[in-house]
Design a protein around this nucleic acid. Structure first.
Length: 536
RNA sequence: GCCCGUGUAGCUCAGUGGAUUAGAGCGUCGCGCUUCGGACGCGAAAGUCGGGGGUUCGAAUCCCUCCACGGGUACCA
């Protein structure tokens, strides 16, 4: 691919004395292997007809891997490779542009004292996949989580627990919901909750036992869910840690970056086209923004060599993050510059509410168990129900582009026909089954293979893998990998339908293709942290 | 009000400047077929790419405007 780009560049230089950065795209298979619109781009610059330029270029571009170049449409160059060159692409590995870089990825931050909900689940799975992508490109990735163990939600939970009327065996979210409701509807309760919040920050002994038990219970829950998902964090941060550092920051820069207003300390975002936010309340307590400044500094101290810090949250925090980062920029510009905020959309269930025990949110644990049950019902004899259900959940999240709202349909997620995680797992297991039945192929020199049409389609698709991963890494978009794997599986199924493998004269060639296919599928699923069992 | 995001087949979503028919899965209708694991393959119907205007050789993709929905908008996170 680089060879072709160079050849195009050289031809353009020689013919028109211009320097170009040609882009190669993958056109529809029936046109060619690669395509470039370089002639169309040059047309304006050189003030000539694009079609004429394309013809001149097609005669001039020379590279060993190119079989032929066609001029098509208004001036596209469609490039077809020799079979052996196409096969060579199978040996290519994704780039490792982040080799020797340390990258921090913070994601999935559920708050203690509240139920971990499906939004956290989505963020955790997406964040984990992004971390995997970064790691695959050579980075030393640190997975971080951050938890709100202080703040109003804690006070609401404490109040709820104290006013539960003896019912103290409910799920965590129940008490939070009780407190949150009282806060809205009852002025007296609201006042009491605010007082409790003061006590939380000041670590009052009177609430210590209750506080600690709630916190411990929360983290047990998180631990069990993350372990179920196979997500391992390198470090957990608490808001209570970040809060002091943040307060010091804000106090130090009040008058310069921040200003006093109505008893609170604020940042005037209007000066950079944003809006004003409170950093320290009139009660003298830090808000989320101040704690986040503290967190940024904490991370910076722990990982001073990190070249990038990625934070994944729900998009309701998008505007908030802009303001926080604008303030950070005034305090520590380099630190702000390496921070990237990625926002995901809102997650809803096609079936509506599943549980009332948590008030108005969908508990992460409920979704997991619903999908698990659906898999058990559908495949009672399967030995890999655990793997299948994880694939169903994860793939449903990961096949969507990050940013938009998504609707989770449990039935569709476990529907093993169609674009689902289990479909891909089955595709993998089926390929492995063929390989295990056949004697290993006699390895032949791949460059001597002459491909038949069905084989060529499969090889062409397989060769796209490194390009897809490179793009997914560059744009931090795991869905590119997910969608590619589905395409690949479909291409293989089509091939498999029309071409025998075992008991065929072309057995050796085809077995090697099946092997490459199965491995590619497995590697791709691994990037998404989705298991690929050998049998199902 | 202002700021940000979203709007693509009945449903769920890819595609975000490029081409001859705008793609996929599910659903619907039809065909192959019990195979090297059918958790399969093939085909059909189905779309004014939210509306309107503009830029461009070329727009679902860029710009303007309007509409709908979601989020944010000073002491929640």
């Amino acid at each position: 691919m680089e060879e072709i780009k160079r050849a195009i560049g050289a031809a353009a230089k020689e013919l028109f004395n211009v320097d170009v950065q040609p882009e190669l795209t993958r056109p529809d298979e029936k046109f060619a292997d690669y395509s470039t619109n370089i002639a169309l781009q040059l047309a304006k610059k050189l003030n000539q007809k694009p079609h004429d330029l394309a013809i001149q270029l097609s005669d001039k571009i020379k590279a060993d891997s190119i079989l032929k170049i066609d001029v098509a449409g208004p001036g596209f160059l469609n490039i077809t490779l020799h079979d052996e060159s196409l096969l060579k692409l199978l040996d290519q590995k994704p780039d490792r542009p982040l080799e020797a870089n340390q990258v921090l990825v913070e994601f999935g931050d559920p708050n203690p004292f509240k139920e971990m909900h499906i939004g956290h689940l989505y963020a955790a799975i997406t964040g984990d996949a992004i971390a995997n992508l970064l790691a695959s490109s050579g980075a030393d990735v640190k997975r971080l989580s951050y938890h709100g163990d202080v703040g109003m939600h804690v006070a609401k939970w404490l109040w709820g627990k104290q006013h539960a009327g003896g019912k103290d065996n409910e799920a965590l979210g129940h008490y939070y919901a009780l407190g949150a409701k009282a806060f809205e509807e009852d002025e007296q309760a609201a006042k009491e909750i605010k007082d409790l919040n003061q006590k939380v920050y000041a670590q009052f002994v009177s609430i210590k036992d209750l506080y600690e038990s709630g916190k411990a219970q929360s983290f047990e829950q998180f631990k069990s869910i993350f372990s179920e998902l196979g997500i391992i964090y390198d470090k957990q941060y608490m808001e209570s840690q970040a809060s002091h550092i943040g307060m010091d920051f804000v106090r130090k820069y009040t008058g310069k970056v921040f200003e006093d207003s109505q008893g609170a300390v604020i940042y005037k975002g209007e000066k950079v086209g944003l809006h004003t936010r409170v950093f320290i309340t009139s009660q003298g307590l830090p808000t989320y923004e101040t704690k986040d400044l503290g967190l940024a500094e904490l991370k910076n101290k722990d990982f001073p060599k990190a070249t990038q810090s990625v934070i994944i949250t729900a998009n309701e925090q998008t505007e908030y993050f802009k303001v926080m980062l604008a303030a950070l920029k005034e305090i520590d510009a380099p630190l702000a510059a390496k921070t990237v905020h990625i926002a995901h959309g809102f997650l809803s269930l096609s079936t509506g509410k599943m549980s009332s025990r948590t008030g108005d949110v969908h508990a992460a644990a409920d979704l997991l168990s619903s999908v698990h049950r659906a898999v058990k019902d559908q495949y009672p004899d399967s030995k890999v129900q655990q793997e299948t259900y994880l694939a169903a959940v994860k793939y449903t999240f990961l096949k969507h582009r990050i940013g938009g709202d998504i609707v989770f349909d449990i039935k569709e997620s476990v529907n093993l026909e169609g674009n689902s995680g289990p479909y891909l797992q089955y595709a993998h297991a089926r390929a492995r089954s063929i390989l295990s039945k056949a004697q290993p192929p006699t390895k032949s020199e791949t460059k001597n293979w002459k491909l038949e049409p069905g084989e060529r389609s499969l090889v062409r698709k397989l060769g796209e893998y490194p390009e897809v991963v490179d793009k997914a890494v560059k744009e931090l978009m795991p869905h590119l990998v997910a969608n590619y794997l589905f395409d690949l599986a479909q291409t293989f199924n089509h091939f498999y339908e029309n071409n025998r493998v075992i008991d065929d004269p072309r057995r050796d060639v085809r077995l090697q293709l099946v092997e490459t296919y199965a491995t590619t599928l497995k590697n791709g699923l691994q990037l998404l942290n989705i298991p690929a069992p050998e049998q199902m």
